[in-house]
Design a protein around this nucleic acid. Structure first.
Lengths: 203, 203
DNA sequence: ACGAGCGTAGCACCACCGTGCTATAAAGGG
DNA sequence: CCCTTTATAGCACGGTGGTGCTACGCTCGT
């Protein structure tokens, strides 16, 4: 049966298993044994595709980061595209809403990403990915704010560095609360908070 | 030498050691051995004061929560006190600023608290404390907003549930970013973001 | 003064971790 | 057809985790 296998697919399947385990038991719960079990493989098979346990985590975190970035990228394309007739306010709202865990799929992703990015504080091998993703988020928000300012959609004496921080902190904070206290942080509340903040920004 | 020891002091000293270890190595790094080492005790001595490793973590998290709550409580007393001549806007700002990691001491506390509260998601024994502290924060913010509305300091058609979420998410998000990406999130930026948000709330 | 009780310390056990290493079976190329 | 390569699987080792249990010494009540 071997040799027909595409290594990339196997790696992806394994990292999916890692994501499920982390969601259930945290990063420290994702041992080679639990991951192999979740993936329906033997521990030796998992090790065949990764140099070490650390590599499994690094690959999975990067994979998850790419997945999130790809999802958000879709909205960026629409917003920064050439179509002049779109409702830009709605497009911006959609873009930022994509950061929020508004459905079970994104909620799971947010849970796992939070686990990884907090774990990265004490795991040097995960830091790079965490920093990259954070820079991506800050850069994206800054660009959107700059563009909106240039367009006259925002007051032009805003301190964009502070506004970027406020917005990214809001998104991170909403996500954090939705992940840790979902019973008090329903999707409709998340959306209401985002809408209110964007509206307040315009005045 | 024994018997002169006050058990509560020993427990407090041990939980201080736990806090230092968690700051350095995360919750999963706080094993009985590392904690005992950090406290300058033998592993058996630590176990004399706690029923289990789990108890050590529970006690320490609760202790840290109380410490944070006590610090914030000081500002609450001042704000809700009877003195009519205080600058209420400044008092509110001071109160909320107390949630932020503006100095090394509070930064350490924020790091450790974040570690505990995220760990609580997968550790049932820590959940209660996490939920309590979160309810405390939400309740406090709601009360302040209600009082400000009653006083006429805020527009009275605000949806306080949404505003409470916005504010608590902002504080949590700012803290999260300061903890995970301190190089991009300096204390003066944190304060600027808070001030801007409070001002925006009033208009 | 002496025994009870508490603080301190550490051994021993089992469970689980990552990893080096080996074994087996299934392809694909010569 | 055989032999190299690759996928899969698993053993065994060293290290480390929490914990049950025991040992020892100091202090204080009687």
């Amino acid at each position: 049966m071997p040799k027909i296998v595409v290594p990339e697919e196997r790696r992806a399947a394994i990292s999916d298993a890692v994501i499920r385990v982390v969601r259930r038991a945290g990063v420290e719960g994702a041992t080679l044994r639990t991951v192999a079990d979740e993936a329906g493989l033997a521990i030796g098979s998992v090790r065949h595709y990764f140099g070490s346990h650390e590599d499994v985590l690094i690959f999975t975190m990067r994979e998850l980061g790419l997945r999130i970035g790809r999802r958000i990228g879709t909205h960026v394309d629409r917003l920064l595209g050439t179509d002049p007739d779109i409702d830009r306010r709605a497009a911006v709202e959609d873009l930022f809403a994509e950061f929020l865990p508004l459905d079970p799929i994104r909620w799971d992703e947010a849970v796992v990403w939070l686990a990884f990015t907090t774990a990265a504080r004490t795991r040097p091998s995960l830091r790079d990915t965490a920093v990259e993703q954070h820079a991506f988020m800050r850069g994206l928000i800054t660009r959107v704010l700059q563009e909106a300012t240039a367009r006259g959609a925002l007051p032009d004496r805003l301190d964009l560095e502070v506004e970027c921080l406020r917005l990214s902190a809001l998104l991170d904070g909403l996500t954090l609360q939705a992940v840790l206290h979902p019973e008090n942080t329903t999707p409709d509340l998340l959306l209401a908070a985002l809408r209110r903040s964007l509206t307040a920004l315009q005045s």
